[in-house]
Amino acid sequence: MTLFRLAGDLSHVLAILLLLYKIWTTKSAAGISGKTQLMFCMVYVTRYLDLFTSFISVYNSTMKVLFISASVATVYLIYFKFKATYDGNHDTFRMEFVIVPALILALIWNYAFTFFEISWAFSIFLEAVAILPQLFMVTKTGEAENITSHYLFALGSYRALYILNWIDRYYFEGHWDPIAVTAGIVQTVLYGDFFYLYFTRVIKGRKLQVLP
């Protein structure tokens, strides 16, 4: 466990808790893409199928349970409890445009042609693009609440920190995970525009507005 990976996981947990906090305290899913959260649910379920079969550490299992349960809770809040506040008209990204390619790629590029490994690769590829509906929604609505910006910053930082972790592991352990690294770079690059807006606006106390 490198420091970067721990920092990345903690940033990920922070993002998940920030989102739950925002929806629960404002009793509103306004500005939040339900589609992104649905896909994150798929990411965790398809990635952690080994939750009951392979034990890595208490930390690993605890985080898996946390990610799955928190993402299910988030989807529940958006589509059921605070359904009336869900802004479906601005959450128009076609999920199949990312789910199908991720599945096809997972069938082609995986570490073994087994259900588990194909499911794992699908999860990695899907996670890389799962944020797209949320980023599209921010551009469509033209702005994002501050806490939503902080949520996105923490979420984008998590995989950026993992990239540092992968560099660290390659340098010290001499091996790397091509699928995870490739997808992780794509995932982090997709936040590029948001990171720019975040650092030029939100940090200076201004609302995150996508310049028209």
Binding site: R5, D50, M63, K64
Partner: peptide, 10 residues
């Protein structure tokens, strides 16, 4: 570990 199959990361 044989690298890949031990998916030890989240």
């Amino acid at each position: 570990s044989d690298g890949h199959n031990a998916h030890d990361e989240l």
